[in-house]
Design a protein around this nucleic acid. Structure first.
Lengths: 252, 252
DNA sequence: ACTTAGATTTCGCCG
DNA sequence: CGGCGAAGTCTAAGT
């Protein structure tokens, strides 16, 4: 990873046109070709960036140095890039985008710091609490979606995509369950499209629909109810047995 | 901005639980409180992060150093943080998230580099080419949405949100125009919902719908046509008068 | 290669 | 502060 702190002006042209006036910024170049331009404020997002695959081009004192990118050649281990060569004056990042080209043009006025670090491979992130896990938990305990529900199968196929859970309810009626982390209007639309298809199947004319989510937005509740669909909020911690179900609807 | 290159293990708990095993990473701390943990690969996204507002807590050699964050005190100008104090052993980032707390816990095993840079304010970004501009261009030239179209008003209010453009067509009929950069199935659903509401209004029973986008996806075209909606692809460069309209529908 | 759906989406606007 | 729509969304998975 190469970290360049520099006063620079940045132009992006591609899906849109953007100009960052001259200011002090961090230019981060990853070994996978990612380039990000960060200001000291502005939160999570880089002010400008380019995702891989990219082609980098560096200029020093007006001279192109096409082979230099992450490993500047002057040294092999970590640390500051030596300054016994002309300073960087321009970094151009290119990327093929269909028939056109995305381009990030960084005009470097002054370099305050320029270091390279060999970080090796960083192990991947393990996470839990995403929609996939919610689906697994509800597949093991479908009664949280509705009283007496029994799972028939996960990922029930339709020609417009799989229904998350297909269940039978207490009276053996079919129920399609759509699972989201956050239940929005889009989730209700999606569930509606599934039911539209499913009800055309033989024996499925009466299939019901349930939206199960960690959080169901008010507008989604209203739309669901208006369409005769049910919705339910589920708590992953409760499903995992880590917490007792709430007895009240709201925290006091 | 503080840049710490360190071997570290990172735990996030909040909206989900995540663990990054020990590895070399960059920890970026912005003066607005943003914290991002980047690996050398993985592209645009940090492996872990916390958006402002946050509270930071640093430990050195097991001792908490609560007042240290961006300006470590040992120095005032830019550059490496002096190493005549015990090395950082832990960084805890906290954030209130409703009734609970989001927490990023960085256990630091080895610090390879730790520098602070004062970057001042970076001027804001100017951009063009997004949906807003498309709406402005089409508002000035609604005939690109359909022959004889005249604009009645932009952002026509409904109780489920504003319709981008409300027009009259060549025969004085109402037309609702939904504008997207990329026209997907969602855009057709959105337009459908607007029409559902609008047609309930007096005098609007026959309002037509048009989806106007720089690019309309095949599935969106099919869905729109199936619902009696029209769609049209528009080119911002042509709207701006920078380019002649294509005489063929497809590039050869 | 293209499309679809999820994301700790983030971000900005407007109530 | 919450809800909703847009984003250069990005990214992973499926076809």
């Amino acid at each position: 990873m190469r970290l360049i702190v520099a006063r620079c002006e940045v132009r992006y042209s591609g899906r849109l046109e953007a100009l960052l006036p001259e200011a002090l910024r961090l230019v981060m170049v990853k070994s996978d070709g990612s380039v990000m331009v960060h200001a000291d404020t502005g939160g999570y997002k880089p002010q400008n960036w380019m995702t891989p695959p990219t082609v980098l081009e560096l200029e020093r004192g007006g001279e192109p140095a096409p082979d230099e990118a992450l490993a500047p050649g002057e040294r092999h281990d970590d640390g500051p890039v030596t300054t016994d060569v002309a300073p960087i004056t321009r970094i151009v990042v290119r990327k093929r985008a269909g028939s056109t080209e995305d381009r990030l043009d960084i005009r470097v006025v002054e370099v305050l710091s320029d270091v390279v670090h060999d970080m090796g491979e960083a192990a991947a992130l393990e996470k839990s609490g995403v929609e996939r896990e919610l689906q697994e938990l509800l597949a093991d305990a479908p009664e949280w979606c509705g009283e007496g529900f029994r799972l028939v199968r996960r990922e029930w196929p339709t020609d417009i995509g799989p229904v998350d859970l297909m269940c039978r309810d207490a009276t053996d009626g079919w129920v399609a369950v759509e699972i989201k982390r956050v239940g929005t209007i889009d989730a209700v639309e999606q569930l509606t499209r599934y039911l539209e298809r499913l009800r055309a199947e033989p024996g499925m004319a009466d299939v019901q629909g349930v939206l199960a989510a960690q959080q169901v937005k008010p507008q989604a509740r209203t739309l669901a109810e208006g369409r005769g669909l049910r919705w339910v909020e589920v708590d992953p911690a409760v499903l995992r047995g880590e917490r007792e179900p709430e007895l009240t609807l709201f925290d006091v």
